[in-house]
């Protein structure tokens, strides 16, 4: 097919005009998106600030409730009813405390104010304590918790941030119990690699997660089943916090799941190394004065 130069030029300029139009449309949409994003960010930061400010107002009365509940149990010793009510108050307050810890940790993470504080942790006793704290929740659902400790690992020690470790494991345990079927077993196992990496698995034999949903579970406020058919407690905050905390500890978390058979979360945390790295890095590199801001 032959076309003249004029036709060719006309066609080309038409196409240019079209793409210019498309480009300007795109930039309008883009500007709108940016505005929307700004608004989102503003509301996000309002929320985080609010949460970090009211932290104490909530924690103090809650501590009082837990303390008074245990006092009540002592004072009312001998009276079955008082003891059962006070232990109920204690258990409910504990549950509330766990939820609040999550919410405050999310607020702190979003404010960027979290720094790992590493200590040496005796893994078996730390895990044992965490598993024990979930026994009453598990018992309510007739789920059995088991901590598997292989030969030679009894004395294993890892260097990590204990407070964050507790929140991570608590969330994994709480999820595993929530999504187990009655009479199921939740297994917690761990190993410490030669490089000091701590690996922990939490395995349940519950409903499982479909392949297409496996990444979404780490998103914020996502519960796979929503609306009136929702059968599970929680707000979908736990795993997003877990992921953010694991990121902060430079670790990784993966999940393997077969719908109907159960889910296994595997957590890998490297030993705290950045502080040691501080020294080695300056030896490897040549430290120089970049420039002086005060002279600029």
């Amino acid at each position: 097919m032959n076309i003249s130069d004029d036709e060719l030029i006309e066609e080309l300029s038409n196409r240019f005009a079209q793409s210019r139009k498309a480009f300007s449309d795109l930039s309008v949409v883009n500007r709108k998106l940016l505005e929307m994003n700004e608004r989102l960010e503003r509301s996000e930061s309002l929320k985080s600030n609010f949460l970090s400010n009211i932290r104490n107002e909530i924690n103090n009365p809650l501590n009082a409730i837990t303390g008074l509940a245990s006092q009540l149990a002592i004072v009312g010793a001998g009276n079955e009813e008082i003891i059962s009510i006070s232990s109920l108050i204690g258990a409910e307050a504990c549950h509330l405390d766990f939820q609040l810890r999550n919410i405050f940790m999310a607020a702190e993470l979003e404010a960027g104010e979290v720094s790992p504080r590493c200590v040496k942790v005796h893994i078996v006793s730390a895990l044992r304590e965490l598993v024990d704290s979930f026994l009453h929740v598990a018992a309510k659902k007739s789920v059995t918790l088991s901590l598997v400790c292989s030969q030679g690992e009894e004395g294993a020690i890892a260097v990590l941030d204990f407070e964050k470790f507790q929140i991570i494991i608590s969330n994994l345990l709480s999820n595993a119990i929530e999504y187990s079927t009655a009479g199921g077993v939740v297994e917690v196992s761990f190993s410490v690699g030669g490089d000091g990496c701590l690996q922990i698995s939490v395995q349940d034999h519950g409903v499982g997660i479909a392949a297409e949903d496996q990444q979404r579970v780490f998103d914020r406020f996502v519960q796979l089943e929503t609306g009136t058919t929702r059968a599970h407690l929680g707000h979908g905050l736990g795993l997003s916090i877990t992921r953010a905390l694991v990121d902060l500890m430079q670790g990784s978390i993966t999940l393997a799941s077969v719908p109907g058979e159960g889910t296994m979360f595997t957590l890998t945390i490297p030993p705290c190394s950045i502080l040691d790295d501080e020294e080695s890095f300056s030896e490897a590199g040549n430290l120089f004065l970049f420039d002086d801001m005060s002279e600029a």
């Binding site: 890095f281 490897a284 430290l287 004065l289 970049f290 002086d292 801001m293 005060s294 600029a296």
Partner: peptide
């Protein structure tokens, strides 16, 4: 007023928040 970006090697930086001086170390 200052930048040291890009390239292929990592950096360690140390900022003095009072004087504004930033030290940069480049990794090999």
């Amino acid at each position: 007023i200052g930048k040291d970006v890009g390239g292929r090697v990592g950096r360690k930086i140390i900022m003095n928040s009072e004087t504004g001086v930033v030290l940069v170390g480049k990794g090999k």
